[in-house]
Structures are given as structure tokens and as C-alpha cells.
């Protein structure tokens, strides 16, 4: 395998680990962007340049900007980082980490027992992807459009500033 792949894979894993361990949300976000960029390199290596571009433009570009906006809106800073430090005790993370490790070992085993021969990579260019997307997967595109529409409407609705509203059952309980 290409040495480039290993390097990028290594970068991806490291940056992802950093994402889940950082205390400051902005730091974590930066590491996530690095992780996404390296994944886009892997996509490119796998012969999927279109996916690599989308990864950078939409994920690293658009979605991460959303996160940054929210973090700024909530004004999360040092206070949050300090709090995170308190929350992230070994007592908290050791169990889940072990479980995840077991899961990974199992995945590792299952993937490696499959005897897969190496193959010659072929680039799947954007044109083929586009033809596939708008011919057999047209329904899927429509559904995705609807999903995005629902996401926009839902976000607009949920994001409105409202007063603290208790559920009616909780209200009753409170009265009692």
C-alpha cells in the first residue's frame, strides 16, 4: 500500500482521538476539521475525487461553520474547558473506552479474516457519480431534498427563542 495512505490514516486517527479528548470545544472542532481533511485525502487516494471535494466543501466548510457559530452563540470558552476537565475523569471514560476497544477488536478480527485480494484502483469520476445519482438514485435525491427541507424548517422552528416551557405533566407535578 501506498505510504501516503498510512500517513494520512495515522493523522486521521490521531486527530480523531484529539477530537474526543479535548476540553475546549474550539480545539476539538479544529481537530475534527483536520480529521475530515485527511479523510478527504484518503477518498482521493481511493479514486473518489468527487467525494473528496464534497468532504472538504460541505463537511469541513459548511457543517463545521455551523458548529463554530453555535459555540460562539453559546459563548463557550474557558469556563467550559474547565468544566470539561472536571467531567472527563478516568472513572468516567475507562469503561466506555474498554467497551469500544472490544468492539474494535471484534471488527478488526472480522475484517482481517476475510481473505481479500488486492486490486487495481480505478478512479470513479464525478460524471459517473452524477449519472448514477440522477438516474437510478433519483428517488433518493428527492428524499434527501425533502430531508434537508425538513431540517431547515425544523431548525428554524426549534431555534426560536422561547420561554422556558414545562411539559404539562411536569407542570401538574410542580403544582402538587
Amino acid at each position: 500500500m501506498d505510504i501516503v495512505f498510512y500517513i494520512t490514516a495515522f493523522v486521521t486517527v490521531i486527530s480523531t482521538i484529539m477530537v474526543i479528548t479535548r476540553h475546549n470545544p474550539v480545539h476539538a472542532l479544529l481537530y475534527l476539521i483536520i480529521s475530515l481533511l485527511s479523510i478527504s485525502v484518503i477518498f482521493f487516494l481511493l479514486g473518489a475525487p468527487f467525494a473528496a471535494l464534497l468532504e472538504i466543501i460541505i463537511y469541513a466548510g459548511a457543517i463545521m461553520v455551523l458548529f463554530i457559530f453555535v459555540i460562539m452563540l453559546l459563548n463557550l470558552g474557558k469556563e467550559t474547558a474547565r468544566q470539561e476537565k472536571e467531567w472527563l475523569k478516568p472513572k468516567v471514560w475507562i469503561g466506555p473506552a474498554i467497551l469500544s476497544a472490544i468492539l474494535f477488536v471484534e471488527l478488526f478480527y472480522l475484517i482481517t479474516i476475510a481473505d481479500v485480494a488486492p486490486y487495481n484502483l480505478q478512479t470513479v469520476d464525478p460524471k459517473t457519480v452524477a449519472i448514477s445519482l440522477f438516474r437510478p438514485y433519483l428517488i433518493g435525491v428527492e428524499l434527501a431534498a425533502m430531508l434537508l427541507m425538513a431540517g431547515v424548517v425544523g431548525a428554524a422552528h426549534i431555534g426560536q427563542h422561547k420561554k422556558m416551557i414545562l411539559h404539562r405533566f411536569l407542570k401538574e407535578e410542580g403544582r402538587l
Binding site: P96, L99, S100, I102, L103, E106, L107, L110
Partner: peptide, 9 residues
């Protein structure tokens, strides 16, 4: 996660 582990096992 535990469910996934069990299924994979």
C-alpha cells in the same frame, strides 16, 4: 454498543 458486541461475538 453492548448489543453490537454481542452480535459480533
Amino acid at each position: 454498543v453492548i448489543g453490537a458486541i454481542i452480535i459480533l461475538s
